[in-house]
């Protein structure tokens, strides 16, 4: 306001330089706002609007298929119902098991492969490219090919190999006892590529003298890794773990394509239940409450891991 007034009034020649600077700075802030406009709009579109909308919807009895019926405000009734809904509790348990097993398993496999790859001398380029490829495959393709086809009890090679080795027949996805485990294996197959890439980048950025110094001290390679390399990987590891855990809690694609939550409710996940009840069933108010419960869990888990990563980074 004051700068506008200043521009409107006459100023002595000595202030001309300052006036020019003010004009340029204001011009710059327009440019800045314009440059960031698409990013701001995107962010509002994919966060502010949906978050506000779902909070509101979760407090009503809005159902898409109640055409024309007035939408009533019901307070926290949807939220209260969540904890009495056996479908939600089963989905919650499955998702928790999935995240608690898949994320650490992905990290352990990824770390093992990344360390091996870092130590490779022959063929490193080939392995690096191969290990990274799954990232470019769609979730649907991975699910159909690696999941449905490889584990198919009739045409899949895994069943044939089990039979040839004299192992008992496993129905994998059709058996409630093994369905979730099979989906976890699939997630590991797919998700490890990213973990390998990030850990390898971190390993390669470590100074090579570290391990040599340890070896001169007489420490074995095993001990050198755990005492020197691994602690240096902790900050990166926390970031990777954060990504893996958050993604695991959100699991949808694999399960919807592969089992649709079955057999029975053995692989029902929270995201899948939100889709079934909100999009397919039209119960947008209850589904909103459910999706928010998931978001709160993810935020809590992410917050805890973030604190750890900051502590380790010091």
């Amino acid at each position: 306001m004051s700068s506008q007034q200043r521009l409107a009034t006459w100023t002595p020649p000595r202030a001309a330089g300052r006036r020019e600077a003010v004009r340029r700075r204001r011009g710059q802030s327009y440019v800045r706002a314009l440059l960031l406009l698409p990013a701001f709009l995107s962010l509002a579109f994919v966060t502010v609007y949906p978050l506000g909308f779902t909070v509101y919807a979760s407090l009503t009895d809005w159902n898409l298929f109640n055409y024309g019926a007035p939408i009533a405000f019901v307070g926290l009734a949807n939220w209260a119902n969540l904890w009495r809904d056996p479908n939600f509790l089963i989905a919650f348990k499955n998702t928790a098991v999935f995240a608690l097993v898949a994320a650490p398993l992905t990290y352990i496999v990824g770390l093992t492969v990344a360390v091996a790859l870092d130590g490779a001398t022959v063929g490193k380029r080939f392995f690096r490219v191969l290990f990274w490829l799954p990232l470019m495959l769609s979730s649907v393709l991975v699910t159909l090919i690696v999941g449905r086809m490889m584990f198919d009890p009739f045409v899949g090679p895994i069943t044939a190999v089990f039979a040839a080795l004299g192992l008992p027949q496993v129905l994998w996805l059709a058996d409630p006892r093994t369905a979730l485990a099979t989906i976890i294996l699939l997630q590991v197959w797919w998700g490890t590529a990213y973990t390998i890439m990030l850990l390898l980048a971190a390993l390669e950025s470590l100074p090579p003298e570290l391990n040599e110094a340890a070896r001169v001290d007489g420490a074995g390679e095993w001990r050198a890794f755990w005492q020197i390399t691994f602690p240096l990987l902790l900050p990166v590891s926390a970031a990777i773990f954060l990504i893996q855990v958050v993604d695991a809690w959100k699991v949808f694609d694999i399960i919807n394509v592969l089992t649709g939550g079955g057999p029975g409710t053995a692989t029902q996940s929270i995201s899948l239940l939100v889709y079934q009840q909100g999009v397919q069933g039209g119960n947008i108010s209850y589904a909103s409450a459910m999706a928010w419960a998931l978001t709160v869990v993810i935020a809590l888990v992410a917050g805890v891991l973030y604190q750890f990563s900051r502590r380790w980074a010091q």
Binding site: L43, Y49, P50, A57, I243, V274, I284, T295
Partner: peptide, 30 residues
Amino acid sequence: LGPLASAQFGFLLLGQRMFPAALLALPMLI
């Protein structure tokens, strides 16, 4: 950038990764 340091703004940009697609899909549908 106004009240935000640009590093904080960058963090905000990535924070959206946390929100599950299931939460965002309902409002998008409407």
